[in-house]
Computed example of a mutant assay.
Amino acid sequence: MAQPALLPALQLPAGRAAPQLPAGRAAPQLPAGRAAPQLPAGRAARTLSAGNAGMEAGGSRRETAAFVREKVQRITSWLKKTFENQPVPEFNVNAQTINLLHMLVEYSEERERDVSFLIEDMKQRAAEYDAEAEYLQSVLTESLDLSPSSLSKEGTAHLKTLVDSAMILEVEDLSLISFFCAMNDRSLELHAAELKNKEMEQELLNSKKKLTATLLLEEQLEKDLEKVKTHLEIEEAKSESRLQNLQFLKDKSEDLRIRIKIAEEKLTTSGLNQSLMHESLVNLSEKLDGMQKEMVHVKRKLDCYLDLPPNLSLARVKVEEAKRELNALEEKFSKKIEMLTHDMLETRRL
C-alpha cells in the first residue's frame, strides 16, 4: 500500500522561519507491512485526541499510550506557539507524522536554547566591554585628567584617526604591538596582492598575445575562406558551363546520329552500292596499306638482283673477271706481307 504524504505544505506566519531537521537525522519509518492510518478528508488538527486513539490502535508497539499522548501535547503546544493566533493547517495524523513533528519540536526547542545561550553570552560580553570602557574612562579622567570634551580639536582628530585605524586594522587593543602586528599583516597581504596582481598582469599579457595571434589567425582564415568561396564559385561556373556544353554535344550527337541514319536509309533506298560506303572504303584502305608494305619488302629483295647481267654468258664473263681481280688482290696482299716481314727482320737486326 502507498504511504500517505508526510505533511502538507504548512504555511508559517509572516516573519517566522520554518524549523529544520538536524543534520544526519532521518525521518522515522513505519514497520514493514504496517500502513499508516489516515483521518477522513476534511478533518482538522483539532481532533488530535481522536487521532491519538486511532494511532494507539495501529501505531508502533514500542510506544506506550502515555508517551504518545505526551508527544501530541508537545506538538499541539508547539504548533500553537509557532502559528500564534493563526489556525493550524490540516495534516494527516499518523505515527510517521507525529514522529516527524516531534523531531521538529525537539530541534526547534534545542535551537531556541542555543539562541538564548548565545544572547546571554553576548549580553555578558557587552557588560564586560561596558565595564572595561568605564574603567578606562575613569583612569583617563581621574589619573590623567583627560576626557573627549577636554581634548583640543587636533587631539580629537588624532583620537578619531587612531580609532578609525584600529577599526580598519581590526586590532585587539590599542597597544603598539597590536598596531605593528596588524600593519605587518596588512603589509604581507599587500605584498601577496601585488604578487597576485603581477601574475594576473602576466596572464593578461599572455592572454592578449594569444588573443592577437588568434585574431590574426581568424583574419587569415577568413581571407582563405573568401578565396575558397571565390574559387568554388568559379569552379561552379565552369562546371555549369561544362554541363551545358556536354548537354549541347549530347543533343548534337543525337541529331547527327538521326541524320546519318536517315541518310543511310535514303542511300539504301536509292540503290547505292555497299562497296562505296564508308566502312567498305575504310576496309579497302587498310588492305591497300598492307599491300603497300608488302611491296616495299619485295622491292628490297629485288634490289639485290638488279646488278646481274641479263644472260648466262655475260654472267660467266663477270665471274671470270671477279676471279682475276681476286687473284690480283691476293698477290698484292702477299707481297705486302713479305715486305712487312722483311722490314721487321731488318729492324730486329739493327
Rank of each mutant, 00 (worst) to 15 (best):
S313Q: 03
K153L: 12
L21Q: 05
K299I: 04
T230R: 04
A5D: 12
L10M: 00
V93I: 04
K227V: 12
V171K: 00
N206Q: 02
A157Y: 00
E201S: 10
M122L: 09
V282F: 00
W78M: 03
D303Y: 01
E199I: 04
F179N: 02
L267K: 04
A26Q: 15
L10W: 01
R16V: 02
L162D: 06
Y107M: 14
K261G: 12
S60I: 04
A5Y: 08
I168V: 12
L21R: 02
D185Y: 07
E120N: 12
V317D: 09
K227F: 08
A192K: 14
K261W: 08
E112N: 13
L302R: 05
L10S: 01
A182T: 11
L100S: 01
A157P: 07
R324G: 06
G290E: 06
A41C: 09
T161V: 01
L136P: 09
N52R: 01
T161Y: 05
L146C: 12
S149L: 03
E279H: 06
A322E: 10
L288G: 11
E56V: 11
E233Q: 15
A328V: 14
A263H: 11
R16A: 04
N52Y: 01
S239W: 09
A23R: 10
V296I: 15
R111Q: 15
A263K: 09
L6Y: 00
L48A: 03
A57F: 07
D145E: 13
N206H: 01
Q292K: 10
R257H: 13
T347R: 13
I75D: 01
E294C: 06
Q124K: 14
K266N: 13
S150D: 10
V68E: 02
N245Y: 08
Q220L: 02
L162G: 06
N94G: 07
R61A: 05
V298Y: 04
C304Q: 07
S313F: 01
R43M: 01
H158D: 15
I119M: 03
S313G: 04
Q73A: 12
L162A: 04
E233M: 13
D289M: 10
L340P: 09
Q3V: 09
S239G: 13
E112Q: 13
N273Y: 11
V317M: 07
H342E: 15
A27P: 00
K250N: 12
A315C: 01
K198C: 04
L176D: 12
E325Y: 10
A322P: 09
Q73V: 14
A95D: 05
L48E: 06
R25W: 04
N311P: 02
T347I: 14
T64D: 11
E201C: 03
V317W: 05
Q20S: 07
R300H: 03
N94P: 11
Q247R: 09
L162N: 05
P31L: 01
